[in-house]
Computed example of a mutant assay.
Amino acid sequence: MIVAFENRFYGKSIVITGHTGFKGPWLTAWLQLMGAEVTGIALEPPTNPSHFVVAGMGEGIQDHRIDVRDPEKISRVITEAQPDFVFHLAAQALVRRSYENPLETWQTNVLGTLHILEALRKLDKPCAAVIITSDKCYDNVEWVWGYRETDAMGGPDPYSASKGAAELAIRSHIKSYFPKSTSKVRIASARAGNVIGGGDWADSRIIPDCVRAWSENGIVELRNPASTRPWQHVLEPLSGYLALAAALSERDELHGEPFNFGPQAQQNHSVLELVQEMSKHWEKVRWEDVSSAVEGPYESGLLKLNCDKALHHLQWHAVMGFKDTVCMTAEWYKAYYQQPDAIRACTESQISEYMAHAKAQGLRWAQ
């Protein structure tokens, strides 16, 4: 049975780690719209501007500034919150930064995940926990078909390797400490990547790079214009996490299972195609191909996911096409520059618009 979001999360205690980052504010706003009681665990917002700050996401939630590398504080907050659901998003999420700070990346992504799992061991109540890793957890050999949940873990860069290691740690902890037959806590991992949407201001990401440059009438430099990615709007994987959490709370056979969340297979587009589509919604746009002049660390050129498992078990699939994804992203940033004080309303409006898309396509979790 697929449980509608509004009925599953209303009045529930929910812990979100990483709620000050990119995905976190969107998930926080979505859960608040559904009447959930949210507890956030994160560092200070990592960017300026910040979606979390400008939209006032800290209002109406329990907002904690804690590093996931601090196991005692993590355990205390989770124990006090007595959550019905946990969404672990906190991570060091930038490939280029992982080369600069590999130890921080491994500590945050692996030990941080273990600290969440250890805190969950102390709960003596039903709880559904979705641990988010990344599509880069796979050992990417750049084949043309999508990776399945059973494919090998690992990657050549510190970020990818740390996410693969986190998946192994999740699987080990579930088998060792959360037996399927008796555990009150149910856990699943979620893998998604190449997410775009309003509120992302991170360095070395193509959409923020474009917005920053174009808002100042500058030129955006394209380091890897030919690289292809399965671009998806931030609300797509978040809907998958919510659908997985709702189903996990009802169905013990999903305990311990990993799930991919990505766009439809035909939605792989190059960085250049993304910039060209984005330029249709922005004035005075310019870009320059600097790939031949840039020397940098290795980044994969092709990566996509097979999401048949989510379709079969959760009746989940992406609902937005490439053009709609880019349009919604551009509209959020335009709204930010025109009226930043109203950006919370824009965020909530786009969540409602996304749900309308899902309902129109007959997805049962959205009804």
Score class of each variant (00 low, 15 high):
residue 1 M to H: 15
residue 1 M to L: 13
residue 12 K to F: 03
residue 18 G to M: 00
residue 19 H to P: 00
residue 20 T to D: 01
residue 22 F to I: 02
residue 25 P to S: 06
residue 27 L to I: 12
residue 27 L to Q: 05
residue 37 E to D: 12
residue 40 G to R: 03
residue 42 A to C: 08
residue 42 A to G: 08
residue 42 A to F: 03
residue 43 L to C: 10
residue 44 E to D: 15
residue 47 T to E: 06
residue 52 F to L: 05
residue 70 D to C: 02
residue 71 P to K: 03
residue 72 E to N: 14
residue 75 S to V: 07
residue 79 T to P: 09
residue 82 Q to C: 12
residue 86 V to T: 02
residue 87 F to A: 03
residue 88 H to E: 02
residue 94 L to C: 15
residue 109 N to S: 13
residue 109 N to F: 03
residue 111 L to E: 15
residue 113 T to A: 05
residue 113 T to E: 07
residue 115 H to G: 03
residue 116 I to Q: 02
residue 116 I to E: 00
residue 118 E to Q: 14
residue 124 D to Y: 13
residue 131 I to E: 01
residue 131 I to M: 10
residue 137 C to W: 03
residue 137 C to V: 11
residue 155 G to K: 04
residue 163 K to L: 08
residue 169 A to P: 01
residue 169 A to C: 07
residue 171 R to K: 13
residue 176 S to F: 14
residue 186 R to G: 04
residue 188 A to Y: 03
residue 205 R to N: 15
residue 205 R to Y: 09
residue 207 I to V: 15
residue 208 P to Y: 06
residue 209 D to P: 04
residue 223 R to C: 07
residue 226 A to W: 11
residue 232 Q to P: 08
residue 232 Q to W: 09
residue 235 L to C: 12
residue 243 A to V: 05
residue 247 A to N: 07
residue 248 L to A: 01
residue 251 R to Q: 07
residue 255 H to Y: 04
residue 266 Q to G: 06
residue 267 Q to I: 04
residue 270 S to P: 05
residue 270 S to F: 02
residue 277 E to I: 04
residue 278 M to H: 05
residue 294 V to L: 13
residue 297 P to H: 12
residue 303 L to E: 10
residue 305 L to I: 05
residue 307 C to D: 03
residue 307 C to W: 00
residue 313 H to K: 12
residue 314 L to D: 08
residue 319 V to P: 00
residue 319 V to Y: 01
residue 320 M to V: 10
residue 326 V to Q: 05
residue 332 W to P: 09
residue 354 Y to V: 01
residue 354 Y to H: 04
